[in-house]
Design a protein around this nucleic acid. Structure first.
Lengths: 217, 217
DNA sequence: TGCAAAAACGGGGTGGCCCTCCATATCGTA
DNA sequence: TACGATATGGAGGGCCACCCCGTTTTTGCA
């Protein structure tokens, strides 16, 4: 059996200069990712941080881990938002609002979508799926509530929804007016492309019911 | 004024060895892209084709151009499919069938989605947007017919639909069972996440109307 | 058929990237 | 202050995209 488990914090609290460099790298990475997206050059990040590339790789053994560290707090904001929306009296509205918030964050923080996308799949096990897991957890609460209220199809999973959101954000990333387009496409995907009755506003996601014609004989 | 315009074919019909190498590169690229996706190494392609890397770059000055050449005939198949579906008595069904066909091609041909995505945006002007343009043209016919039949929202554009399709395909690419998942997500996006009445089958895209409750007071 | 210009070729160079080794510098403490 | 554990970063290897330019092949014409 293993000698000892120390889950949250290794006894070594990290040396002062190490922590300083860690922070520097994180800041430089945030800049670089904002500028170039998730594919930003790691050497460039190390250069901006004023450290050697080896130091960067020691602190963040994979690109995914670096991205996770960069976006951790933004993801926490989204999770908190989900918590707040749990009190919304309208479960459907809460869910769609949150998904839109996720999309808004993803398009305004280049690379976030790519970071959230990579879940468990892809090579190394348990090597940086934290953000993905956090978001899934946060969204699940909103989804089950909406499902209980019969406001979403019973077969829709949180993975479905998040994949759609991230796919859309990834697709419109680096487009002229990405935020608006992402919101528009998300509204479309949530409401469907078939015409709702009166609904004339901006791709309103609610009130899907109504009189209609059957389009398939 | 310009001396002369010769739109379709430059008078030089390409030397025999040049055409031979062109074909070889194309074949090698098809293999490599099938194996590694749109990010396949160009040097590896040149190596497989038995030509120098300079030759590859001469024939295909950009990765995008090479991908377009690789996928040209598949895109033509999709365009032909769109033509066939124009005779479908049900415009809505024709449109969704075609979008599903696009998705099916995109997931089964690694890199196609990425190739179709890059439209006009991104650096050089008119440097490889042919596939994108062809697909847009083909889809527009189906969309306007569906729109006339009031089977789609009037504000939905073909760009919206194709972006959704490509985004989904890009997202599920290299997932275990990508094709099924892409089809499922596309069905979701086309029909919306809100519950349809009886509709119990596989994410049926039609008959979006139904009895419901107003979800926003 | 023979030949010279044009066209195409590809080896090798440049510069970038990711990642690792190890001699050196720095920090925390006895 | 002095020592050992810890952290550093320059150098180097492997891979890649892309380009320069001397060489080879093809072609059109005499």
């Amino acid at each position: 059996m293993p000698k000892d488990s120390r889950p949250p914090s290794p006894p070594r609290p990290m040396r002062a200069d190490a922590r300083r460099n860690y922070e520097r790298i994180l800041a430089a990475a945030a800049d670089a990712v904002a500028e170039y997206g998730a594919e930003a050059s790691l050497e460039e990040i190390a250069r901006r941080a004023g450290v050697g590339s080896a130091t960067l790789h020691r602190h963040f053994p994979s690109r995914q881990l670096l991205l996770e560290a960069v976006f951790r707090d933004k993801v926490e904001v989204l999770c908190a938002t989900a918590g707040d929306l749990a009190a919304d009296p309208d479960p459907a509205h809460a869910l769609t609002s949150w998904l839109r918030a996720v999309a808004a964050h993803a398009v305004s923080n280049r690379g976030l979508a790519a970071s959230l996308m990579r879940g468990v799949r892809d090579g190394d096990p348990a090597l940086g799926a934290t953000c993905h897991a956090m978001i899934v957890d946060a969204g699940t609460g909103l989804l089950v509530r909406a499902r209980r209220a019969k406001a979403v199809r019973p077969d829709v999973s949180i993975t479905d929804l998040l994949t759609l959101v991230n796919a859309i954000c990834l697709a419109v990333e680096r487009e002229p007016d990405g935020a608006a387009r992402a919101d528009r496409l998300l509204g479309l995907a949530l409401a469907g492309v078939h015409p709702a009755r009166e609904a004339a506003g901006d791709t309103p996601p609610s009130r899907p019911e109504g009189s209609g014609r059957s389009s398939r004989p």
